[in-house]
């Protein structure tokens, strides 16, 4: 069973390439600072050294900081914030979705209205308000992204739980006297997880995009080096130092693409029937 999953995932070349790429970037962002220097804020040379000169692969920025090092540091925090906000969204969304799907009736109605409400709001404006009001920090960014993305998880989880709650094995658990909460957690949730895992993996990618937008607008954590921050602060120098903006952008695109490929691979691995239907 487990081996089947892995085999189906491996049969998808895009997913494998994506996974290898991600593994390489994560390893790179951990190992590289040992060679390149530990502090991305530190001045490493003259300002505005073009890429490839004086040993700076991606050049230096307006303060003479190493762009390559900053991009690598950005990987760390982008992935951390991506995973963190995905967990926040799954925590809120999966809980509410599971309760709505299992309880049904007015509880379901109420929770679904709340879900729709959060889906209809202009999400970027909402998160700007939340982060600006809470003060820019890693935590407010994670909470903000969690608040605007949980409805997606809630919908998927609700649909899964609804399709599972009347299965025979769940009825059986009910007959032997298991309590509703136990049934939900022990019997239903494990089987409802595959689609949630797929959507969660894709949410890491969209969280990275949202975080980069926030940092670009100056609402990222001021103490960490992120890709969006690099693009936002260097854009006035675009005319004579394009490389400071170019490389962080390429980092965002390649990471988001890789995560999307892995997500597609997971979808194919966890739900083979869906792929055949396409």
């Amino acid at each position: 069973m487990q081996r089947d999953y892995i085999a189906r995932f491996m049969a998808n070349p895009g997913a494998v390439v994506g996974l290898i790429f991600l593994a390489a970037v994560i390893a790179g962002s951990i190992v590289a600072p040992m060679f390149l220097g530990a502090n991305p804020w530190e001045v490493a040379g003259r300002p505005f050294i073009p890429p490839g000169q004086d040993g700076f692969l991606m050049g230096t920025d307006m303060l003479g900081r190493d762009v390559a090092l900053a991009v690598l540091y950005g990987t760390r925090f982008s992935l951390l914030i991506g995973v963190g906000s995905m967990l926040a969204a799954v925590l809120i969304g999966a809980t509410l979705g599971a309760v709505a799907g299992y309880a049904g009736g007015w509880v379901d109605d109420l929770l679904m209205r709340i879900t729709e409400f959060f889906q209809i709001l202009p999400s970027l404006v909402l998160i700007l308000v939340l982060v600006a009001f809470m003060g820019a920090s890693v935590y407010s960014v994670i909470i903000g992204i969690g608040v605007i993305t949980w409805p997606n998880v809630a919908r998927v989880m609700r649909a899964e739980v609804m399709s599972l709650r009347n299965r025979e094995y769940v009825e059986a658990a009910r007959v032997i006297g298991q309590r509703p909460l136990t049934i939900l957690v022990v019997q239903i949730l494990p089987n409802a997880m595959p689609p949630v895992i797929v959507i969660a993996s894709l949410m890491i990618a969209s969280a990275i995009l949202t975080e980069s937008a926030l940092s670009f607008l100056g609402l990222g954590d001021p103490n960490i080096m992120t890709w969006g921050y690099m693009i936002g602060t260097s854009r006035e120098y675009l005319r004579f130092a394009w490389w400071i903006s170019l490389f962080p952008g390429l980092a965002i695109i390649s990471t988001v693409l890789a995560i999307n490929f892995v997500g597609d691979g997971l979808a194919a691995a966890l739900n083979p029937r869906m792929e055949e239907g396409r």
Binding site: S212, I231, L238, W242, S245, G249, I252, I253, L257
Partner: peptide, 22 residues
């Protein structure tokens, strides 16, 4: 479609400025 889906619009905007305005 996949590529543009993964591209932040603010960065794309800057690169367009770089190419077509500068």
């Amino acid at each position: 479609a996949l590529l543009f889906y993964a591209t932040p619009n603010f960065w794309l905007g800057l690169m367009l400025v770089l190419l077509f305005s500068i």
